[in-house]
Computed example of a mutant assay.
Amino acid sequence: MYDRLRADIVAGAFDAGAALVELSLAERYGTSRTPVREALRRLEQDGLVERGDRGMRVRTRSPEEILEIYEVRISLEATAAAAAAQRHGELDLIRIRRAQAAMEATDTGDPGAMADANRAVHERIWAAGRNGTIVDLLTRLNNHLTRYPATTLAQPGRWTEAIAEHQGIIEAIEARDAERAHDLARDHMTRARDLRLRIYQDGDD
């Protein structure tokens, strides 16, 4: 139930701000109200739904929220990259390089695959930092951003640019240069934030 409702929200089957009534959802998905209630609780934790005056609803979108999410994400991604530079092992580097190679081989005609490949590189870097709290927080922030389905990577020139930026971060991690890894990751995510705001402004979110 959770997976189905989450997928529909992310896909835009429900408008932002739409009421999520337990009885109606139970009928829609052919289930009882109990799994619907549990799914809504989990989706609220994910940041995909929120409590309104008349119950649960799909969380609304705003440029202010984009700024809030990225303000935290920029800081955490930079910290994660610095930690990876300090704490990584050889196996971590192999996994990061493998994810980067998979990203480079991804079909650029498939925005969903592009976003997945990009996220895989970031997740390998997070893991190399050996800080479960940072990984948990970044995962939650990514959940928030799934409500903005248009990927920044589909913007002209961004895919090639992002791959090059990843390469710089990875090289800094390999060199155990925590300061450089931090700064490159910060700049990488700052560019992503600016593109995300432009997409929202253009009405393509």
Rank of each mutant, 00 (worst) to 15 (best):
E123L: 15
R147T: 00
A26W: 08
R193K: 12
R4V: 14
I94A: 14
R158M: 11
V10K: 04
G47M: 03
D15M: 05
E65I: 06
G168Q: 10
Y29E: 07
V135L: 11
A150G: 01
I69M: 02
R198W: 00
G112F: 05
G203I: 06
G30W: 07
E38P: 00
A128F: 05
S75T: 13
A113H: 08
E27G: 09
T31D: 08
E44M: 10
R97F: 03
R180W: 01
R28D: 04
Q45G: 13
N142K: 07
A16G: 02
A172F: 07
V10A: 07
D194W: 00
L153N: 03
S75R: 14
E174Q: 14
A13N: 14
D8A: 15
E27L: 12
E38L: 13
I9G: 05
T190G: 11
Q45M: 04
H188D: 11
E171Y: 11
D53P: 12
A99Q: 09
E68K: 13
A162N: 09
H182F: 07
A18T: 03
R54C: 04
E123T: 11
R124F: 00
A105C: 10
A172W: 07
E77R: 04
P156A: 01
R37W: 03
Y70K: 02
R87G: 04
G17R: 02
G203R: 07
S24E: 15
R59N: 01
G168N: 10
A19G: 07
A18Y: 02
G52V: 10
A154R: 09
T31S: 14
R73E: 12
R6D: 09
A101C: 09
A19L: 12
F14E: 03
T79I: 12
A115G: 04
E161R: 15
L197P: 13
A164R: 14
H188R: 13
G168R: 13
R59D: 01
A127V: 10
V49Q: 09
V49L: 08
A115K: 13
L137H: 11
D110L: 06
W126G: 07
A192N: 08
P111W: 02
R198H: 08
I173Q: 09
E71I: 01
R147N: 01
R42I: 05
A81S: 14
D202Y: 02
Y148A: 00
T106G: 11
A18G: 05
A115T: 08
P35W: 01
R140N: 10
A150R: 15
Y29W: 12
D202W: 05
L93W: 06
N118E: 14
H188G: 08
H188L: 07
L184E: 12
A39T: 10
A127I: 09
R28C: 04
R119C: 09
L138P: 01
D107A: 09
I9M: 04
Q45N: 07
R4K: 11
A16Y: 08
R147H: 01
R42P: 03
Y2P: 03
A162F: 02
Y148C: 00
L153D: 02
I66R: 09
T152L: 00
Q155M: 13
